[in-house]
Write a protein that binds this DNA or RNA. Sequence first.
DNA 1: CACCCGATTATCT
DNA 2: GATAATCGGGTGT
Length: 197
Amino acid sequence: MKKKLISRSFFERDTHLVAQDLLGKIVVRVLDGKVIAGKIVETEAYTSQDPACHAFRGKTERTAPLFERVGHTYVYFIYSSHFCLNIVSRNPDIPAGGVLLRALEPVAGINDMQELRPQGLGYNLTNGPGKLTQAMAITKDSCSRIDVTQSGSLYVIDAPEVAPTDMSYGPRVGISAGREIPWRFWITGNPWVSKSK
DNA sequence: CACCCGATTATCT
DNA sequence: GATAATCGGGTGT
């Protein structure tokens, strides 16, 4: 696996373009010297102009990272039990935005992932936003505001772009407002993409 | 301080 | 496919 970090400027573009271009890239988690990694196979884009975005109604303590430096993480806690991982990404014209990572295809440290998420058999290991954070021990406390463009405990490395013909898009999952914006992207036919309704 | 609801998952039919 | 679990954050009194 070649280890080339992604530049800050990659994240300083329209959020939906970053979401598409993140497909195929590799998320790396380093825990006690162990390396866990997964290929991004499904993403969603959220911007402050869009009613589905946590930042739509302005900055609060929870959503502050979305307004801060691009290329850093925004981790939030949802439904009393799950964490979701975003990477702050936006064109400088807007105040806030990020890309939600919805699914990964494991590429390294699969045994460690299974230990962290014993109930995640088969594709259930990382085929959902709350599942992949559990399999990588990503929590709000341990992984908020991490710069993923720098080698550390959580970062992203470059990989060849996914061709447009291998990519699909559609409405985002689990939201009420903003359903008409088709900002969910996934690698067509990849079995690790989440089951959605 | 009370109320409402959520960028989900596991489990059951 | 349908639904319960479960509690922090955001909003308004």
